[in-house]
Amino acid sequence: MALSREDLLEAYRRMKTIREFEERVHVEFAKGGIPGFVHLYAGEEASAAGVCMNLTDDDKIASTHRGHGHCIGKGVDVHGMMAEIYGKRTGTCRGKGGSMHIADLDTGMLGANGIVGGGPPLVCGAALAAKIKGTGGVAVAFFGDGASNQGTTFESMNLASVWKLPAIFVAENNGYAEATAAKFSVSCEDISTRAAGFGMPGVTVDGHDFFAVYDAMREAVERARGGGGPTLVEVKLDRFFGHFEGDNQNYRAPDEVKHVREQKDCIRRFARRVTSEHDIAEQELAAIDDEVAKLIDDAVAQALAAPDPLPADLTTDVYIKY
C-alpha cells in the first residue's frame, strides 16, 4: 500500500514535531527549567514515524527512557508532554511521571520506561490481549541496543514466538548504550540476526531512511495481524544528543555528531525525496515547519505557566481502592 500525499505530510509533521520538541527541550534544559533526567530522541525521528505510521490507535507501543519521539509518533498530546517534562499538574501524568514515564493508554502508548528492557514483556501482554480479544491489534516494543542484551528482551522474544503473538520488536540501534559502544557490548554485527534463535524473521534497516523503516514495519505488521507471529526489526540510526542532557559525549569521535547532523539527517533526507519524487512542494513543508514551531512555542509557554501539583497529589493514585 503506497503512502498517500496526506500520509507523507503527516509523516513529515510527526518527524518535524519530534525534532522541534527535542531541540527545544535541549535549550530549555540548559536554562535550568526542566528537572531530572532527560534523554532526547533527535536524529532518530524516522524510526518513530516509520513505525507508528503503520499503527492505529488500537495498536499499542511500549517505549524506553528515550521515549519522547515514540510518544509524538503515536499521537500523544504535545502540550501534555511538555507540561509533564516540566513536572506540572497539567502534564500527561499530572507531574508524577516525568520524561521517563510519559504514558497515554488512550492513544496506545503504554509508557516510556526507566528500566532498560522493561517494555518487551509488557508488549507480550498487550499482544496477548489483542489476540485473546480478537481485536486484530498489534503491539510494538521499542528498545535500544542496550536492551537488546537484556534477558527480559530475550525471554519476551521467545515467549512471543512460542505464543505466536502479534508483537513486533523494534531494536533502535544508535550505536551506544549510555557511553558504551554497541560494537563492544553487542555480540553480533546485526541485532536482527538474533531473531533466528527465537524462530522469527529479523531484518535490519537504515534508520535514517523513513521509507526503509516504514516498509519493513509494514511487512511485520501485516504478518502480525495475519496471525504469522512476531518480527524483529533492527533500525540502525544515530542520536544527535548525548545519552542524557548534560552528557558531553566525549566517548564519541570529535566530529561524529557534526557528521551525523550534516550527512545523516533523516528529516532532510525525507524532505528531499518527497519534494523530488512525490509531488510535494517545499512550501508545503515550510508551512508545516511554521506550524510545528508555533506548537512547540505554545507548549513551552503553557507548560511554564501551568500550576505545580498540589501537596495532596503526593498520596493519590497509588491504588484504585485501598
Binding site: 518487551p120 509488557l122 501482554g125
Partner: peptide, 21 residues
C-alpha cells in the same frame, strides 16, 4: 503454559492487564 521465563510471562500478564484482560 509458559516457557520458564518469569520476567516475560509475569510482564506479559501485567501488560495484558493494562490492555483489558
Amino acid at each position: 503454559d509458559t516457557p520458564i521465563s518469569e520476567s516475560a510471562f509475569v510482564g506479559a500478564a501485567i501488560g495484558a492487564a493494562t490492555c483489558g484482560l
